[in-house]
Amino acid sequence: MRSALLEREGFAALVLRLRAEGVTNLDLLTAVEQTPRSTFVPPEYAASAYSSRSIPIECGQFMEGADLAVKLLGQLQVKPGHRVLEVGTGSGFITAVLARLAERVISLERYKTLIAGAQRRLETLALRNVILRQADGTNGLPGEGTFDRIFATAAYPSMPRFYAEQLVSGGMLLVPLMIDETRCIMVRLTKTGSRFEREDLFEVPFLPLQPKIAQQL
């Protein structure tokens, strides 16, 4: 009972902060509410599940603070019927929220341990429209058709133009780009015909992409 109360209080505080920043999409906020974030954080960080701080997870990775995670999902503008590719499963929290918004989600993660943990959590929530794959997502997912939305959480050193072939016309890519050795910015690219319209959004704390590595950790 106490944990359920903390979950509700944490979500309510998150919604107030998000509304102050202009995030009011009801479908998105409902999907977040239906995805108990404390399920995805290590037990020792349960009290910080809905905070804005980044939280360490296994394999030396981290999950975004709750505010940033929801803001990014808002920028992605996922609609019912969409097919979504996620590059970087991590804890599976964003994956789970995407699954509540889209028709189908394919999520790539190079760490076997993270894939296994995310799979358990998704099964607990009875989310069955997600495919998790242990894979190097450096080049996205060529050969699997096109996606309405692509969302990457590992920073690329330069514009990953190959994603143009993996997006439908009118599709959208959200990807971090390195702007110097330690900083990266989130960029939204919308495909119009064979061209991208680029919008630079805000700085994000993502780690640089490590290509050609699919680890067994």
Rank of each mutant, 00 (worst) to 15 (best):
T35P: 01
T30G: 00
A69N: 06
R19A: 02
P42I: 02
V32Y: 08
D67L: 07
E44W: 01
S54Y: 02
P56C: 12
L72D: 02
V97D: 08
T89W: 03
R100P: 04
K71S: 08
R8C: 05
G74F: 07
G88R: 07
E21F: 06
T35Y: 02
D27K: 01
R53W: 02
T35I: 03
E86K: 11
V41Q: 09
F93Q: 12
E86L: 15
L18N: 08
G88H: 04
E64G: 09
V15H: 07
E86R: 11
R104Q: 15
E64C: 11
H82Q: 14
F40I: 09
T24L: 09
E9Q: 13
A66H: 08
P42K: 09
G88F: 02
G92S: 06
F40A: 10
A99L: 07
V97Q: 07
A20D: 13
T24G: 00
G74A: 12
Q61L: 14
L29R: 13
R17A: 15
F40L: 10
L28F: 03
V23F: 03
M63F: 01
F11R: 07
A20I: 00
S52T: 12
A46L: 06
V23A: 00
V41G: 11
A13Y: 05
C59K: 12
F62Y: 14
R104F: 05
I55C: 11
T30C: 01
M63S: 10
G22M: 05
G88W: 03
P36V: 00
E103C: 01
E33L: 14
G92H: 10
I57C: 09
P56I: 07
F11Y: 15
F40Y: 11
L16M: 10
S52F: 03
E7P: 01
G92I: 00
L73G: 12
P56F: 07
R83L: 08
Q77K: 12
